[in-house]
Simulated scan of single mutants.
Amino acid sequence: MSSPEPERLAWFKSSYSGNEGGECLEAAVTPGTIRVRDSKAPACAQLAFGASEWTAFVRFAVTR
């Protein structure tokens, strides 16, 4: 199964992100994968996480 092309993904920013142009990440969710990229450099590299890895990361981040 091929993954969607990056430009076809529905990217979104966190509701905690402001509109002041600060540093921000964007995420896109596909079946079984969460992709993350830098909002200031959307054409550059992306990170892709499986659902269980993303869940573990979010749990870790929330406890910090």
Rank of each mutant, 00 (worst) to 15 (best):
V58N: 07
R64E: 15
D38V: 06
P42I: 02
F49H: 06
T30Y: 09
G21F: 02
M1P: 06
T63G: 13
T55L: 13
A48K: 01
I34W: 10
A48P: 00
E53I: 05
A51L: 10
S39H: 02
A61E: 08
S17Y: 00
G32R: 10
T55R: 12
E20R: 06
R8G: 14
C24S: 01
G50L: 12
D38W: 03
A61V: 13
A27G: 04
C24F: 00
A56N: 04
W54A: 02
A41P: 01
T63V: 13
I34P: 03
L47W: 03
E20W: 04
G22A: 02
F49Y: 10
N19R: 05
S52H: 11
W11K: 02
P31M: 08
V58F: 07
A56Y: 06
S3I: 14
R59S: 13
A10H: 13
T55Y: 07
G18P: 00
E20V: 02
P42S: 10
A51H: 11
V58L: 14
T30L: 13
N19M: 02
F12V: 10
T55F: 09
E26R: 00
P6I: 03
F57M: 07
S52F: 07
T30E: 14
K40H: 11
M1V: 13
A51N: 10
G22D: 03
E20N: 04
T30I: 10
A61L: 13
G32W: 09
R37D: 05
P4F: 05
S3L: 15
A61W: 09
